[in-house]
Amino acid sequence: MGRDVRQQAREQLAALEEPVGGDEPAAQGLHGDVLLVARLLSVAAENRRDGGREPSVTADDVGAALTLFEGMREQLDRLEAQAVLEARRHAMDWRRIAAHQGLNSSQAASQRYQRLITRLEEIRQGVR
Rank of each mutant, 00 (worst) to 15 (best):
R115Q: 05
R119E: 07
G126S: 08
R78N: 13
A98G: 10
G32E: 11
L76Y: 02
R6S: 15
M1L: 15
D33V: 01
Q107E: 10
L79I: 09
L120C: 12
E54I: 04
R49Y: 02
R10D: 13
G22F: 05
A64H: 00
L30N: 12
G126Y: 03
Q8Y: 11
L68T: 08
V62F: 00
P55R: 11
E74D: 15
G22T: 08
L76N: 09
E54M: 00
E54A: 05
D60L: 00
R73I: 07
R112T: 02
L36R: 14
E122H: 09
A38L: 11
V34T: 13
W94T: 03
E18D: 08
G21V: 09
A87Q: 09
S105H: 04
A65T: 03
R3I: 15
E80T: 06
M72N: 11
V84E: 02
L41R: 09
A91K: 10
L79H: 08
R3D: 15
S105E: 06
V127L: 06
R3Q: 14
L30M: 14
T58S: 01
A109D: 07
E74T: 13
G71N: 13
G29D: 09
R48A: 14
V34K: 11
V127S: 07
A109Y: 02
Q28I: 06
H90K: 14
L16C: 13
R119M: 03
R119Q: 06
R3Y: 14
Q28M: 10
N47Q: 07
